[in-house]
């Protein structure tokens, strides 16, 4: 079938941009209205950046942003280490149950967030309840859910995404190069640092940026496992929306969207750059993160 006729070309172009419009018009409107002078409603009354200035003085937004950054940074570091170790363990070593391990590694990626959220809530309640009983804490000084539980929850799905991208890189890394390193006198430890890790670096970095982005954006799971003093930015935005509809929310959402886009483009850029330098060898890596981005 030929797609080269003018008619087909026009149709394909129209379909592509039609779908993109459908996807991005809400975001465009959000960005637009974050610069609107009117406090309420859908009428454009003039350009302003005052909502962005107001954000700087909004203590709740600033503290929530700080929480989000802390949680994202810590959970990403842990997720990268665990996710990389996990993918090495299930792809480079053989043992009983390895096949099953390979099949369930992406469960956190495909599990509905609501399910993950509810199950983590139940789990943390159980553990924290038992811990409080054991330590004899009463209501006044009891351990509660907070940043720690959010970090654990974010590590849980972040590590799965890291495993996803690292495994794609591992598939492109000839096991013979690891043997070559040992053949040349490198210990297994040195082989990992000098050959394996540089070889899978595109996957590790891509996974790290994905984990970071997803942690910054996450709402559903975070909502279930957060506690007093651990409000993240998405949860704060949701809370403010419930009280009043403020253009400040538009402004902060625009900033979140911009930051997420930059991180994602960086993730893809790193992988594409490495792929170009090792031309011909790395081909499938850069397509994986796109598949891995969940609908939010």
């Amino acid at each position: 079938m030929s797609m080269s006729s003018t008619r087909a070309k026009v149709l394909m172009g129209a379909a592509t941009w039609g779908v993109y419009l459908f996807l991005y018009i809400p975001v465009l409107i959000l960005v637009l209205f974050s610069f609107n002078q009117a406090r309420t409603g859908g009428t454009w009354t003039g350009f302003t950046t005052k909502w962005y200035t107001a954000l700087a003085g909004n203590g709740r937004i600033i503290s929530a942003t700080w929480n989000s950054i802390q949680i994202a940074a810590i959970s990403t570091v842990i997720a990268v280490v665990l996710g990389t170790m996990l993918s090495l363990a299930i792809d480079r070593y053989s043992y009983r149950g390895r096949k099953t391990a390979q099949q369930i590694v992406y469960l956190p990626v495909i599990a509905p967030e609501i399910v993950t959220g509810v199950s983590l809530l139940a789990f943390f309640s159980l553990v924290i309840g038992a811990l409080n009983d054991f330590l004899g804490r009463d209501a006044g000084n009891a351990i509660r859910m907070g940043k720690a539980t959010i970090i654990i929850a974010h590590v849980a799905f972040g590590a799965a995404f890291v495993a996803l991208t690292v495994r794609a890189s591992l598939r492109n890394l000839d096991p013979a190069v690891e043997e070559a390193a040992q053949d040349l006198g490198a210990t297994p430890w040195a082989t990992f640092w000098k050959v394996t890790l540089p070889g899978i670096m595109p996957g590790v970095l891509g996974g790290a940026l994905l984990a970071l982005t997803l942690s910054l954006d996450n709402f559903v799971i975070t909502f279930f496992v957060s506690g007093p003093g651990s409000t993240t930015l998405p949860i704060e935005v949701f809370g403010q929306l419930r009280r009043t509809i403020s253009p400040e929310v538009n402004a902060v959402s625009t900033l979140i969207f911009a930051a997420s886009s930059v991180l994602l483009i960086a993730a893809l850029g790193i992988q594409a750059g490495v792929a170009t330098r090792r031309s011909g060898q790395v081909t499938t890596v850069s397509s994986t993160p796109e598949e891995g981005v969940p609908d939010q």
Binding site: V177, E179, A180, A181, P198, Q281
Partner: peptide, 13 residues
Amino acid sequence: VNTIFQNYALFKH
């Protein structure tokens, strides 16, 4: 001992 591998197994990075 050192090995020459069938597909050379050079370090691409």
